[in-house]
Design a protein around this nucleic acid. Structure first.
Length: 661
DNA sequence: AGGTTAGCGCGATGGCGTTT
DNA sequence: AAACGCCATCGCGCTAACCT
């Protein structure tokens, strides 16, 4: 696969994959054919490309079956999730007239064009703001390549661009890097000043007039020193930097290391000082230290030069909070508080009408909420919760960046589309349900027949559809960070209510969950909802770091697969048959019940380990026995599937013969 | 009763050596 | 150089024992 295709990830879905797969496979077959014709093949040959497509094509086009409805070719059955028909494959092969892999070097390069927002994550909002760059005298850009450090300097007022390299011409190919950096800086500045069109003329890279480093390893220190003192003026014997000796550079190096260790933002400062016996830790020191950290950032490497003179006062306390009390509460209780990243339901996958649980969610009016996928602003989520109060009547009051936020239940409903009528459930049986609800019948409703419903209900004992519903419940609707594979009493009640169409005030449930999260050390749920709220109230977020929605947040096929289920080619979800168990069942005639949901996967198998006394012959004999056995079992399974299939067809025919009631 | 944690299994991923 | 296969590693989910 030519990598250029991957340059534009957003457009991957529009790429002509069918042609690509087809072309690749045909090329591979042609290569093999050539080898066969010329007699280059000694004993075996291998093809590359999509073997499944080849098999499907061969199966259908080479007449390996007699009739379209009886697709029982054993290998094809293994790929039961594929939806295939003769017609589709024909079309796929016919429309692939042109291919796109022919000469990818001739295709135009599609690259993501960076916008101002894309640069945002590289600037720590509490250290430097994008707009602040415009008012700087100099902007320094350090760079390392092939183990060599140098930097670039931009004089903001005159827009002059310099390269400061202690190795005269630098590493091999530096000119190319110079051009590339200049081009990028020019575009970035164009975006920053909103004059992208005017920034088209190339930015000239001037070489700073500095001496060559006196050794082979001083580049980093000289670069750091340049960032500290360099201003372009050639005031040191006609050069813009002094000539440093090895001894001077060694002193600088020590000074830098000391500054970094002693920096107030160094999270390991106390640890390091203690290690060298230089610190007596007191609670006050710790606390003062924590507060300073709180005002600054949430970890990660710092990308500014070491401070000397002393650091400027922290910025965030003034911007995020309107008074000391808010700041105090935040720094004591919410600083670095973990955020509970929710999941979202893949509606395309589940919304095909074959999932009962999805219909239940739809009926409850929750499918918009469970499908919601949004970014969030970690620091602002913490501030939101830090200042949040929820009144008895369900009004959320908080303040972020001095913007007051009041969310009444009606507005909550309007912004989130979460149903807000029904019982105000808070973890206990609601009075209205008392006559209908009892724990035993609710547990029976949730669990597979015959399973133990006493005590804890584990995920594995739940019915398939209920289990997905529970997964959605404790990861999206009422998310928690641990124990997600066990149903609590609260879960059982909510599942019961959902499955019996009992109306629940989900707005109330979610507000209650948010309220509970304000207690110490609890993870903060629903971060994406906070984004919606802040948007509505116009909280400025342009300069705040935010998260991207990740693939692993999606609830889709992988989740069902992790449950140990797979889809038959009839479209039914069944537990996977555990091949590892077969070994344990030697000598026991036990039927494999494919398609029976109540069939439980057995205990993990214990593979027989050959002892040192066993001879090689014994081991080989055992392997042969095992092979014969596995082959036999596979045959049995194939036969049984065949019989079952016959029965299903007979049953279907019978049903069709009977007139509808 | 419910939260926490260790251990296990499974599947995805990527590195690396071999083959073509 | 591309393709392939093996294998170590990692993350996630499930279970059961332990803890509060």
């Amino acid at each position: 696969m030519p990598c250029l295709v991957l340059d534009d990830l957003d457009s991957l879905s529009t790429y002509d994959w069918s042609s690509a797969v087809h072309k690749y496979l045909v090329d591979s077959l042609n290569r093999c054919n050539k080898k066969l014709l010329f007699g280059w093949i000694a004993d075996s040959l291998s093809i590359s490309g999509n073997a499944v497509v080849l098999q499907l094509w061969a199966y259908e086009r080479l007449g390996l079956h007699d009739d379209c409805s009886a697709k029982e070719f054993s290998r094809v059955r293994r790929f039961s999730s594929l939806n295939y028909t003769t017609k589709k494959i024909d079309v796929m092969f016919r429309i692939a007239k042109t291919h796109v892999l022919h000469d990818y070097r001739k295709r135009p390069v599609i690259q993501h064009v960076w916008q101002l927002l894309d640069y945002q994550p590289y600037f720590r909002y509490d250290l430097v703001r994008l707009q602040a760059l415009l008012f700087a005298d100099w902007v320094f850009i350090p760079i390392v390549s092939d183990g060599h450090w140098w930097c670039y300097a931009l004089k903001v007022c005159t827009f002059q661009f310099y390269v400061i390299d202690s190795l005269a011409n630098g590493i091999k190919g530096r000119c190319r890097i110079d051009r590339s950096i200049a081009q990028n800086i020019q575009r970035f500045w164009g975006l920053l000043t909103d004059k992208l069109e005017e920034s088209k003329c190339p930015l000239l890279v001037q070489k700073a007039n500095i001496s060559v480093q006196p050794n082979t390893y001083g580049c980093g220190v000289i670069m750091m020193k340049a960032i500290e003192i360099w201003d372009g003026e050639e005031k040191y014997d006609g050069k813009s930097m002094p000539d440093y000796t090895n001894e001077e550079l060694a002193v600088f190096r020590k000074k830098f290391v000391c500054d970094w260790i002693l920096d107030e933002d160094n999270v390991r400062r106390s640890e390091t000082l203690q290690h060298f016996g230089l610190l007596v830790v007191t609670e006050m020191v710790d606390r003062a230290h924590k507060k300073i950290r709180a005002s600054s950032s949430t970890g990660g490497p710092r990308n500014r030069p070491p401070p000397s003179p002393p650091v400027s006062p922290p910025l965030t306390s003034n911007e995020l909070f309107s008074n000391d009390e808010q700041y105090e509460r935040f720094s004591t209780h919410f600083f670095e508080r973990p955020i509970l990243q929710g999941k979202y339901l893949d509606v395309e996958f589940f919304g095909d009408g074959t999932f009962e649980f999805f219909d239940i969610l739809t009926k409850a009016g929750l499918n918009d909420f469970v499908a919601c996928r949004r970014h969030y602003y970690p620091e602002l989520v913490r501030v939101f919760y830090s200042n949040m109060r929820v009144s008895d009547s369900g009004v959320i009051r908080t303040e972020v960046k001095k913007v007051k936020i009041t969310i009444k239940p009606s507005l909550f409903h309007k912004l989130t589309s979460i149903p807000s009528v029904g019982a105000p459930f808070e973890g206990n049986v609601v009075d209205d349900w008392k006559d209908q609800y009892n724990s035993v019948s609710a547990r029976q409703l949730i669990c597979k027949p015959g399973s133990n419903i006493q005590g804890r209900i584990l995920a594995g004992t739940m019915k398939f559809q209920t289990r997905i519903l529970h997964y959605v419940l404790c990861r999206i609707l009422v998310p928690r960070s641990t124990n997600v594979a066990q149903a609590t009493e609260e879960d059982i009640m909510l599942l019961w209510a959902l499955m019996n169409s009992v109306q629940i005030n989900w707005g109330h449930v979610i507000r209650n969950r948010m309220k509970r999260a304000t207690k110490d050390n609890a993870q903060l749920p629903y971060p994406h909802l906070i984004t919606t709220f802040m948007e509505h109230f116009g909280v400025p977020t342009e300069t705040d770091p935010f998260t991207q929605v990740k693939n692993k947040q999606r609830i889709g096929l992988e989740v069902l697969s992790s449950f140990g289920y797979h889809k038959t080619h009839e479209g039914i979800w069944v537990p996977k048959v555990n091949v590892g168990n077969i070994q344990e069942q030697v000598g026991i005639e036990q039927d494999v019940e494919v398609g029976n949901e109540e069939h439980e996967v057995g205990e993990p198998s214990h593979n027989p380990q050959p002892t040192s006394s066993q001879t090689l012959t014994e081991v080989i004999n055992q392997i042969q026995q095992l092979r014969t056995f596995v082959e036999h079992r596979f045959d049995t399974i194939e036969n049984r599937v065949g019989v079952l299939h016959e029965e299903v067809i007979q049953f279907r025919n019978q049903l069709e013969r009977q007139p509808p009631a």
